[in-house]
Design a protein around this nucleic acid. Structure first.
Lengths: 198, 198
DNA sequence: GTAAATAATTTTACATTGTTAAGTTATTTC
DNA sequence: GAAATAACTTAACAATGTAAAATTATTTAC
């Protein structure tokens, strides 16, 4: 009988609804307006139901953060199949990062604990910045200029600081309306960085 | 009679105590642990007293943010008297920025709404990033390579994104203990940026 | 088809938060 | 020392995250 399956499907749906609602409220009113009760009201359940899906609010945010990072990671591996040139890969990925941060600022905010979003768990950072070789970006940097692993790891870190840093400063300090102005400036900085690698 | 003066002095002291206590708690336990009641307890007053000094919690944070920005601004004007070379000024100021963010992370957090600190008012950003000429950094950039005001404003923005961005990414994603490792990487990035200006 | 078992959901409750209004105590003025 | 004022506290409200208890709905067993 498909009872268990139906239940599982429903559970999955509710879970997705919770995540989506949290993001929706955050986008409309900012993360400090996101409360368990408000999410519950939107999905038409009582507040405690949320604890059937997430241990607590922090874990809920952690899920959104992880989804953000893995979405970007997926985009990156997708781009890797499209572009052979490591320089091109870096530029295209930077573009994707920018687009992502502009189009889903509420997710970006959770990813980096900015603008009222706050998630204690630092696990995602350890993964993302674990200066591993085998990371597509690390790889690209190594191909552009082969050096010691340490030297490449350093450049790897500079890359994240440049791209994510630019985005953070822009998202935090600039009004939404003027962000379009800054995209070419961002891309030019990235281009200069890539040019400077060889 | 000095009654009014004494009262004024006391008021000023309490105000400073409030700000200091907020920063202390933030540094020890993070900004999400900072509550009006906790501050009140430390300064040994009842909670409502805080509203005699600040309209609300947001204004309190805004004050800390403004103090942060003006502290850095003061340091910058101080450095300007010490160094004639615009390149040297930029490098030295970057160093000051780094030192500040490491030594007073809780203030830096409020300045940029990161790590649980959240202040609605965006006024400080409008002032700081108002791409004005006459700003010491803008000035330095203009001296290194004289161009159109627009072109310099663009570089001005790139400067803030590079320096503050690097700091934000580092503070947010890295454990306190490993931050020392990144200072040379930061400074090298800044140096490359300055070199690339000419 | 109904009783027992279990799953799903809600109600109630508690401690903590920012903030306001009302009340109280201390200080100053005359 | 009484009246006026300043300084401060207590009490209260609504909103928050979250846990325990209570309830309702669904499934299972016969």
């Amino acid at each position: 009988m498909g009872i268990v399956e139906r239940r599982e499907r429903l559970r999955k749906q509710v879970r997705t609804d919770i995540l989506k609602t949290a993001r929706d409220i955050a986008r409309e009113e900012g993360w400090q307006a996101v409360s368990i009760r408000k999410i519950a009201e939107v999905i038409e359940y009582s507040p405690p139901i949320l604890y059937e899906y997430f241990d607590n609010k922090d874990k809920l945010l952690e899920t959104i953060r992880n989804e953000g990072f893995s979405h970007l990671h997926n985009e990156l591996t997708r781009l890797k199949t499209l572009y052979r040139s490591p320089e091109k890969l870096l530029l295209e990925f930077a573009q994707v990062q920018w687009k992502f941060a502009i189009e889903q600022p509420e997710v970006f905010q959770v990813m980096f604990n900015i603008e009222g979003a706050m998630c204690q768990s630092r696990q995602a950072f350890q993964v993302e910045f674990a200066m591993l070789n085998n990371h597509p970006i690390w790889d690209a940097l190594a191909h552009i200029r082969p050096r010691s692993a340490d030297a490449i790891s350093k450049t790897f870190y500079e890359w994240w600081c440049l791209t994510y840093g630019f985005l953070m400063v822009s998202l935090i300090t600039q009004p939404k309306t003027s962000l379009v102005t800054f995209e070419p400036i961002f891309m030019e900085s990235v281009r200069r960085f890539v040019r400077g690698l060889v």
